[in-house]
Design a protein around this nucleic acid. Structure first.
Lengths: 228, 228
DNA sequence: GCAAAAGTGTTCCTTTTACACCCATGC
DNA sequence: GCATGGGTGTAAAAGGAACACTTTTGC
């Protein structure tokens, strides 16, 4: 603590989004066990070790604090204001990640657990400048989903079309025309229609689809522009 | 050197773009005076001081190493691979900036100077992972200019329309239709036509314009979407 | 047979692209 | 008066938005 007092600390923080067709977009927060901001909710994260990559640090912290394993992870922004941590100087590289929430109900709502999902519309007060980070992440998610097919990271591997539509509606925050959206999306040629049907219990069952990842990357390489 | 050996160093690097209607897009590099990569060209940058913001560090380093003062500065990406610096762990927050090159001919091509403009099409081998940073910055510039009017940061305050067109052609790397481009741009309502004319020596002199910054921010606030 | 949700096609309008002629200036 | 570059408008094509009826299932 005395040696290296004048050296800046480097940390990572992660905004992990999950999606559930019934509850919408959520993100993972952990409850802080120590001061400052003891008992407040915060983003998972922590100091980067000397020899690990930033991405490795994020994965490690997520594993340690939430036992989540994310597939999709992208750097968001680096927050470096001198006063963002009241103890000492901590510069934090923020990442955002996406997971299929259906696979991780673990921390859902047990009061005893330290990690929980929060709907992005009902977040508690956050420690440090984490609200700012979350705001940036949500903005990025909105933008990103229009020109990269990241939505598939949030849905199950196989899904009825209506779920894709609903996901876009939730993230964009407005109703979309079912027919136009489907037309446009199918035209991209990155969805595979499956023989299976999916019934929600009521009404006509919908066709299941899955993302053709390979087709997408092939097309992307040829200069195809994704935009929805 | 022995104390804090296990703490990560934090630096900033800056990709400063300049534009000249005759020579195109350039960026500033400095020649390294010390190992590693002694005598190689590198981006201006250096370690962040304990109590300064990241932006302040960038401005300071630019002042010290190139005597440039940039108005437009934006965070680009943070590079943190453990091996990016052969000496020890240095995580670097990269920024990119824009300036009116016409105001800074200082370091233009004096062989004795340590800072120089290089056309982005003819860059020398760069130290560290700086080529990667530059690639990202160029990509960002191309993207950004289509949905934010950052071009005005590169042009003189008053400019004939043709220069705006040429700037976009250079950055996009392809010819644009003069009439369609002008129509689209003027429709945005963020350009002010000036009474002055500008002659290139030959042909009919062109009308001068200037960017209506206030009008732009007012419109932006009302939700207007800039896209060219 | 009725309620609920999925499937499908056409028209209209807006935006984008393509394109050609006249005008002001310097020499 | 001719070469050079700047200014302007229109028509065709493409893309996006709006919109209604039929089909399949559960009860």
């Amino acid at each position: 603590m005395s040696a290296g007092k004048n050296k800046i600390n480097l940390s990572v923080d992660a905004v992990v989004f999950g999606y559930d067709k019934d509850t919408g977009i959520s993100l993972t927060l952990i409850r802080r066990k120590n001061p400052p901001f003891k008992d407040a909710w915060a983003l998972p994260g922590g100091l980067v070790k000397y020899a690990e990559t930033l991405e490795a640090a994020v994965h490690r912290e997520l594993r340690e604090e939430t036992s989540l394993e994310v597939n999709y992870l992208e750097q968001l922004y680096t927050y470096g204001h001198p006063d963002r941590d009241p103890r000492n100087r901590v510069v934090s590289v923020a990442y955002y990640g996406l997971i299929r929430q259906s696979q991780f109900q673990l921390h859902a709502d047990s009061d005893a657990s330290e990690a929980r999902w929060f709907n992005i519309a009902q977040l508690p007060d956050l420690a440090f400048d984490h609200q700012k980070i979350v705001d940036t992440a949500i903005l990025r998610l909105k933008n990103k989903i229009t020109y990269e097919p990241i939505g598939f990271e949030l849905l199950d591997q196989k899904f009825p079309f209506i779920q894709l539509l609903t996901l876009y509606e939730v993230i964009r925050g407005k109703k979309l025309d079912r027919r136009n959206f489907k037309k446009k999306f199918l035209q991209l040629g990155i969805l595979e229609e499956l023989p299976e049907k999916h019934s929600s219990g009521k009404g006509r069952p919908g066709t299941m689809y899955q993302f053709k990842k390979k087709a997408y990357f092939d097309l992307k390489e040829k200069g195809m522009v994704f935009e929805v």
